[in-house]
Simulated assay, not measured.
Amino acid sequence: MTQSAGTHPHSMDVGRIRAVTLDLDDTLWPVWPTIARAEAALADWLAVHAPATAAMYADAKALRAVRVQVEALRPDLLRDLSALRRESIRLALTQAGDDPRLAEPAFDFFFAERQRVDLFDDALEALEFLAARYPVVAVSNGNADVHRIGIGRYFKASLSATVLGVAKPDARIFQAGAQAAGVACGAVLHVGDDALLDCRGALDAGMQAAWLNTAGAAWAHEGAAPHATVPSLTVLCQWLA
């Protein structure tokens, strides 16, 4: 089922929705420009505070290669993107001969920059619409902080794979989202951009799912399709009104 406009049919049972769980990265803002900007800011910080590391890892690809090393050394951190980033910085500092204790302030600087997101044009209006009608719970595999970003007032709770120790599409993170909202999974509409992590995961957890599909891609996964496929959050809100 692929829809590209608000006039297309959908199978959402709007009357059954009592809460909304919402993905963050690439649903409310584009994530990769945010990460790229934060990594560039980190490089500038390292140039001042850890010049040997900055010189050795002047190329962002080189620093990402260190992250691959850390993933292999510390598979326990794969659900904790903050810890993974912090330990990657620590390893880079160590390999370059700089003080590994700089990993903490370096990460703190990066993390603050990571929260400087550019919301999609319709994100705030959609959040206001949703929060006025439902308890809204953020469910994310990433490490964005809705309060530091400045949108915490729209959310009853914000859950991350880092805190829960499980990541989408694991049903348990969706179940935790429903619990935080105070309703059963069957009363939740999950909204997200990732067909597998968001939609397939939510469907497997017994939720209704709305796929934010700005690219107009076809549904390519086995099993049931999302209850709605929308090109924008604005269209989703029109269908829920």
Rank of each mutant, 00 (worst) to 15 (best):
T94N: 00
W239C: 09
R85H: 04
V139P: 00
H221P: 01
S140E: 02
R101L: 09
G192V: 14
G97S: 06
R148L: 13
A205P: 08
V230G: 03
A180S: 13
V31G: 00
L119S: 00
T94S: 04
F120L: 09
A40Q: 10
R79I: 15
R200D: 02
A241E: 14
L196A: 08
T94P: 01
V70I: 15
F109M: 07
Y154I: 03
A47D: 03
H49A: 08
P75V: 09
V31D: 06
G97P: 05
L130A: 10
N213D: 09
A210P: 07
G177T: 14
V117I: 13
S82L: 02
A205L: 13
A36N: 09
V188A: 02
A241K: 08
L102S: 04
A60S: 10
L22S: 10
G201E: 10
C185M: 09
R37K: 13
D98M: 07
A217P: 03
T234G: 15
D98A: 06
L63E: 00
A47E: 05
L78H: 06
A195V: 04
V117M: 08
R86F: 06
Q95S: 00
I35R: 10
A96S: 15
A60R: 09
D26L: 01
G186P: 11
C185D: 11
A224P: 11
R114I: 02
Q179D: 14
V191Q: 03
A62E: 05
A50G: 10
G206H: 07
A123V: 04
C237K: 07
A178G: 09
L22Q: 12
L240E: 01
R64N: 11
C185H: 06
E39F: 15
A176H: 02
E87T: 15
D26P: 02
A184V: 07
W45P: 01
A167M: 06
L189T: 01
S88M: 03
R101N: 08
A224K: 02
C199A: 03
L130R: 06
V137D: 00
A65C: 10
D98R: 02
L42F: 11
I35A: 12
Q238P: 02
L42S: 13
G201L: 12
E125Y: 12
A19P: 13
L73F: 14
D198T: 12
A184L: 12
A171C: 11
L236T: 08
L130S: 05
V139Q: 00
A228N: 01
P30E: 04
Q95K: 07
D25S: 11
L22R: 04
A41Y: 01
I149R: 04
A62W: 15
A202T: 06
T7M: 09
S4A: 05
F155D: 00
W211S: 01
A72T: 11
E39D: 07
G97F: 14
G186H: 13
L240K: 07
D23S: 05
R200A: 15
L78C: 04
K61Q: 14
I89S: 01
P135L: 02
A55S: 11
D99F: 06
R101S: 03
W29V: 05
C237L: 11
A65E: 10
T229K: 00
A167T: 12
V68A: 09
K156Y: 03
D13I: 09
L78G: 01
D44C: 09
F111N: 14
H227T: 13
A218E: 13
D23P: 10
L196G: 01
L102C: 02
